[in-house]
Design a binder for these strands. Structure first.
Length: 426
DNA sequence: TGGGGCGTT
DNA sequence: AACGCCC
């Protein structure tokens, strides 16, 4: 059996572990740049506020102290996520992280009676050891486990834990009750297209002819349909596999047509990307750069260009990535547009240890490669030890508009000695 | 009015 | 490359 453990309002829950006064209050956590609300406590949801609401729309409620919105503190959430995983590891036959707040767990050799008890114990222990509330769904396939989790979250009677056997009456009832759009892998578009065929619930999709689903939609949807019947056909991407592409992008913080500003922001992204590349031990063979105007400003001309530049040889050297990104930018930049966002993507990645030696390599290029590796590893080490951005290529101006907005950031309670929670006795 | 990632066509 | 999906 497969379990899906999903942390409730994860970012909000992390904050509440260290700020008990936030418990029972309407609390939200904002996306990067304090742009929109991406995590909501139940109390905030009860006020009718939705995931994705722009933060600026809530300003007066914040000022009146009716709601609390925090900037996202990914260092804290990442560490809390690792703690949850550690607990799961102890209580399962293996953990496969799926996202920062969701983990699949494997259960081997448990009878169905024991299964429920075990899942409940896991649910309680995570809460006890980490302070994070979770819901647990268990089923024979990942898609059904996701669905069971949904039920555990939404239907109070389950009290946070739902175990489904594939052919049970209970599973059938749930499949009929759950909306199609709540099924893992079925988004807005598919809901519309499936409705035309009379497929309106998860049950309908489970009953549909898989071959026909494949023909009219895709192999992925066919797999989803089969999984709803209890036939496993979705494997997890191994979390330890290196990424196949690496993207770094960010909104500029304000609309801008200033090429210098844009260049600086993209240099930053290029360096971050190259860092990620080195940390996973890969080399890139191409760099993609894109720009985007603000699609919500229908009154302004729109332009969303992108360009790929091939690298002369696979590399993880920030300087070569930046050079390529610079060329790409020259190609796509047009004045008089107000750009909202830009980014750098590293493509065509290969493992560094499988680099093909080129016939054109000379002792000089070999020495160059050595030197490059040394410079980069010194940079990475300094940045890791002294904090991100200690050593940078180029000279970014400190007040640049694209620096991240995060006005309401909490402490990194669990990963920084100087930001520990202080307890006072009085 | 986020910032990633992946797969399919 | 565009589009769809996920969080």
């Amino acid at each position: 059996m497969i379990g899906l453990v999903d942390c409730n309002s994860f970012y909000v829950s992390c904050e509440r572990v260290f700020q008990p006064r936030l418990r029972g209050r309407p609390v939200g956590v904002m996306s990067n740049n304090d742009g929109c609300v991406i995590a909501l406590s139940t109390e905030l949801k009860a006020l009718g506020i939705k995931m994705g609401t722009p933060a600026f729309e809530l300003q007066h409620q914040i000022r009146r102290g009716q709601i609390h919105l925090l900037s996202s503190n990914y260092e804290l959430y990442g560490d809390m996520s690792a703690r949850v995983q550690d607990v799961l590891q102890e209580f399962s036959a293996g953990v496969e992280p799926y996202s920062i707040d969701e983990m699949f767990v494997r259960f081997d050799g448990l009878e169905s009676a024991q299964m429920l008890e075990h899942a409940r114990q896991l649910h309680d222990r995570v809460r006890q050891y980490t302070g994070i509330p979770v819901c647990v769904g268990v089923a024979p396939t990942r898609t059904l486990a996701k669905l069971a989790n949904r039920a555990a979250k939404k239907i109070a009677a389950y009290q946070g834990v739902c175990v489904l056997q594939s052919d049970s009456r209970e599973t059938q009832v749930l499949l009929k009750k759950i909306e199609l759009g709540d099924v893992w892998g079925v988004g807005r578009r598919l809901v519309e297209r499936l409705a035309v065929m009379g497929i309106k619930s998860a049950w309908d999709l489970a009953q549909a002819n898989p071959k026909e689903i494949r023909r009219r939609f895709s192999v992925t949807l066919e797999r989803t349909a089969l999984e709803l019947r209890g036939i496993p056909c979705i494997e997890m991407n191994d979390f330890h596999e290196p990424r196949q592409r690496i993207m770094t992008s960010r909104s500029f913080g304000k609309l801008t047509d200033n090429l210098d500003e844009i260049r600086e922001a993209l240099r930053q992204h290029g360096q971050r990307g190259a860092e990620k590349l080195r940390s996973q031990g890969s080399l890139a063979r191409a760099v993609y750069v894109f720009l985007k105007t603000n699609p919500f400003r229908e009154d302004l001309p729109q332009y969303s260009p992108g360009a790929v530049v091939e690298l002369s040889r696979p590399t993880d050297d920030s300087r070569e990535v930046l050079r390529a990104a610079g060329h790409a930018l020259e190609r796509i930049y047009r004045p008089h547009y107000l750009y909202q966002k830009g980014g750098v993507m590293l493509l065509d990645l290969i493992a560094a240890d499988r680099q093909q030696l080129s016939l054109l390599d000379t002792p000089q290029t070999d020495a160059e490669r050595q030197r490059s590796a040394t410079v980069m590893s010194v940079m990475d080490e300094l940045n890791q030890r002294m904090g991100r951005g200690t050593v940078k290529l180029g000279t970014p101006s400190p007040g640049a508009a694209w620096h991240l907005r995060c006005a309401n950031l909490t402490q990194r309670y669990t990963t920084r000695w100087d930001e520990l929670l202080v307890a006072r006795t009085k």
